[in-house]
Amino acid sequence: MSKSLLVISRQAPWSGPSAREALDIVLAGGAFDLPIGLLFMDDGVFQLASDQNARAVQQKDLGANLQALELFGIDDVFACNHSLEVRGLNAPASAQGLGSDAIAHLLDRYDQVITL
């Protein structure tokens, strides 16, 4: 039985490689059939904002990539409610919103955690 992994993505999408790297870990894990979860929190929730334009900053479309998570077998996608609220974002359809207590329990459910 392979170990389960929770990836916490907490950086905004365009200013550095962290958001991309978190997604790459998740997609690679999915390709190997690892039980994997992805949690967006802090500025990471900005990755979920709709209608962003990656081409304006000559980058690859992270939002389009995120739409492929389900095909890669990643069904457990979460977002931190607190992080969404303080940034004035609505809960996105592509991620399940979680309160702080639920996130603490989420950490308990996985064997390993990577925070980027």
């Binding site: 999915g30 390709a31 990539n65 492929a68």
Partner: peptide
């Protein structure tokens, strides 16, 4: 065109089936 990435084998199979 839709996802801006090349699928690995499993997602390719899943997408083709879909």
């Amino acid at each position: 065109a839709e996802f801006q990435l090349s699928p690995a084998t499993r997602p390719l199979i899943k997408y083709t089936a879909l």
